[in-house]
Design a protein around this nucleic acid. Structure first.
Lengths: 251, 251
DNA sequence: TTGGCGATTGATGTATACATAAAACCGGTC
DNA sequence: GACCGGTTTTATGTATACATCAATCGCCAA
């Protein structure tokens, strides 16, 4: 897709990683399918060494699964795997928020977070929210979560959060776009933003348990988004990595 | 150390990984120190390709840190990083336990866990606990935690738990051996075992919140173990990866 | 002495040839 | 027709040569 400027400046490894990831997420490589290195070479146009590196990285991300005898296959996810991954993210973001609250956050640290909060407010205030506004929300939401996670000041915690959120359906705003056309969409965004406000309030007041609970419930909005999008069956193409979901999870 | 049988059957990549990991954990490679691929080739005796693979894997484990311009260095941990990693494990084991409780565990699933519980009981019952018994406890404890985590039935959750527990000081029984000689040791083991009993009871009765809370507190015993071992300064050599801990965490 | 700039060194990134092991295939036999 | 053994194929594992980029060192000038 975006091969123009990218192909020139990036390393072969990254290029291969992006190309393969795209093919996995778009379903061109199906769940359970084996990806041989040679095949990946054909796809990406780079040699085996960076291809191999890219495959290892993608296994790390959670998109591929190592085959015991060697090589990789596209990982298959059950519907519950997705829900569990969301719950996992909520749990870890909850931990980060609790730590931030317990340890205290300075005004200086909270300032950019409140700024971001205000920016999102401006977005969700408009009554019919445009598609562009949904896109902008996704970006601002990602920023808000990143800033929030930083607040705990713990590198190990942040690292783990990043690792679960690397899964395409576990990221903070994974299913926002998919339900953007639905009537419930605006209301859900308002609720999500209220969670944002609540967690900052909790952190300011050093209410660890509350901060944690808010973030857990916040993540569960993603579950609601997913269910809505699946039921209405509109914009199913906007759902990330749907092709990776199999009926029977064959691990 | 165990180069005899190992060197023959394993792949070069695994061999390099083990050798480098040993050198990091034993402090022969110090925190913050860069490990060049050529240097690693000299150390391990294998060529650059498997060395490179091993370095990537070790970064994954969390022992190494990628340098933006390329290459790797030994990661430095602050004391709080260690405490946070333990809290992280507790939080995720808590999640697993809660899910197990909420979803219910069959008698068939609980049976091996209770068997393991009984085995540990037999160990901690003896009054002066021998050093061998401490070693046996470490093994049984690892098994108990593994079985417990399986109970949630969620591959993503189990995967993440394994990833945090891969850190040498975040594993379930990281600091058990280090405090084995102290007078408080026996008592702590009894408490830990009571946690084990409590979490199974909670899961059987579908008490999700209780199961979660127990596992969180259970992990904090590791913090106590660590503090005890540090204060008494006996068996400091049994503390894993102490050389990776720096006064000022320079990330 | 210090600051900047160019050459040299040494690092990683990449491609590819070779070694080896797994898997597929095919023929024969029971 | 199904199973078993050997052969062929195809996969990954490994080593190494080459390309490229960053960093360092040393020299020169201000």
């Amino acid at each position: 897709m975006n091969d123009k400027a990218a192909d020139r400046s990036m390393s072969q490894t990254v290029r291969a990683q992006l190309a393969l990831r795209d093919m996995v997420l778009s379903g061109q490589l199906r769940a359970g399918e084996r990806i041989s290195e040679l095949q990946a070479v054909d796809i990406t146009g780079v040699s085996r060494t960076p291809v191999r590196m890219a495959l290892v990285r993608l296994e790390d991300e959670g998109l591929l699964q190592a085959i015991p005898s060697g090589g990789f296959m596209v990982k298959a996810f059950s519907e519950r795997d997705i829900l569990d991954s969301i719950e996992l993210r909520g749990t870890m973001e909850g931990l980060a928020a609790r730590l931030a609250a317990e340890r205290g956050a300075s005004v200086r640290q909270l300032e950019p977070l409140k700024q971001c909060l205000g920016d999102i407010d401006d977005l969700v205030r408009q009554d019919p929210i445009s598609v562009d506004a949904f896109s902008a929300y996704v970006a601002l939401n990602a920023r808000f979560h990143a800033l929030l996670n930083e607040l705990c000041g713990s590198a190990p915690v942040m690292r783990q959060i990043d690792r679960v959120a690397a899964l395409p359906f576990a990221s903070p705003s994974a299913f926002v776009m998919a339900q953007s056309g639905l009537p419930e969409a605006h209301q859900i965004l308002l609720i999500a933003q209220d969670h944002h406000r609540a967690v900052i309030d909790a952190i300011e007041n050093r209410e660890g348990a509350r901060a944690e609970a808010v973030m857990r419930e916040h993540a569960r909005l993603a579950v609601r988004n997913l269910r809505l999008a699946l039921r209405s069956r509109t914009h199913l193409d906007l759902l990330p990595a749907l092709t990776l979901v199999t009926q029977a999870a064959d691990k």
